[in-house]
């Protein structure tokens, strides 16, 4: 008996199969409860597949003339809203990046020694980051009205929080050696930050700003859905007018734009870091 138990697998291993089964059942139960509450039935997806296929059919322009019209007449008219979308993303990203700088200093424990200020700055950045961009956009639409202005505000707040959080984490990870060396040489605090911290963090900061710009381009295409300007407003309009072919062209163009910017930005970021 004793010899046998010594050969048996350790207790943690023995219970693993049963535990896996219990976790699986728990996940299934949560899924079932959520589906029941939201009246979501996977069966419906299969049963009503023809409705989706029909919608896709309505979106797909079915003859040559329609394609020519959509690409030569409708698409050029999207230029202004698309440019507005990019402008919203650019303004939001740049303003957010600039506003992030003081928070980077306050939310880095090697630059801000006061624990209360540090904790407050870090908590504020985390709090701002938990709110989704579209929620900011709806709040600002309610506050200042429809149009691109609330969109820019929403992206500014969101970008500031992300850039400040990521950059302050990089600042906390810099090599402390040069900071100590400059301090020992009688440098002021501003000199230490400018010469020992900034050179180490600048490439990362630029990379984070580009990363946030990628996110902002994607978000700015849907800001219009809550009335915050850009191409999303056109998409919303076409869907509400049942102009599915036009909506399809907007989605297609959005996809191309976002993919192109993602690709270009990722290339630049790869060279930076």
């Amino acid at each position: 008996m004793k010899a046998e138990s010594r050969l048996a697998p350790p207790a943690t291993r023995r219970g693993a199969g049963l535990r896996f089964l219990l976790v699986l059942m728990a996940v299934a139960a949560v899924y079932g409860a959520s589906a029941a509450a939201t009246e979501f039935h996977p069966v419906v997806v299969v049963r009503d597949a023809d409705v989706f296929v029909q919608l896709l059919g309505e979106m797909w322009p079915d003859n040559r003339e329609r394609w020519v019209f959509l690409l030569t007449d409708f698409l050029p008219r999207l230029k202004v809203p698309f440019i507005q979308t990019l402008q919203i993303a650019i303004l939001g990203t740049l303003a957010g990046a600039v506003l992030a700088v003081p928070f980077v200093v306050l939310a880095s424990n090697n630059l801000t020694r006061n624990p209360v200020v540090y904790a407050a700055a870090k908590a504020l950045m985390n709090l701002l980051r938990t709110v989704p961009e579209l929620l900011y956009a709806s709040i600002f639409v309610a506050a200042v009205g429809f149009g691109p202005f609330p969109g820019v505000l929403a992206l500014t707040v969101f970008s500031m929080a992300i850039v400040a959080k990521l950059t302050s984490e990089s600042v906390e990870a810099v090599d402390p050696g040069p900071l100590e060396a400059l301090e020992a040489a009688g440098a002021t605090r501003a000199q230490v930050i400018a010469y020992a911290v900034v050179p180490q963090v600048l490439p990362l900061f630029v990379s984070y700003v580009l990363y946030v710009f990628e996110i902002n381009v994607r978000v700015s295409t849907v800001l219009g859905l809550v009335g915050a300007g850009g191409i999303g407003q056109q998409l919303q309009l076409m869907l509400s007018l049942f102009q599915y072919e036009n909506a399809f062209i907007i989605i297609l163009a959005t996809f191309v734009l976002v993919a192109a910017i993602d690709y270009a930005s990722a290339r630049v970021r790869a060279r930076l870091v």
Partner: peptide, 13 residues
Amino acid sequence: GMIFQEFHLVDRL
């Protein structure tokens, strides 16, 4: 003046 074991230069500059 002060010098260190790990030199403590700003490597990128």
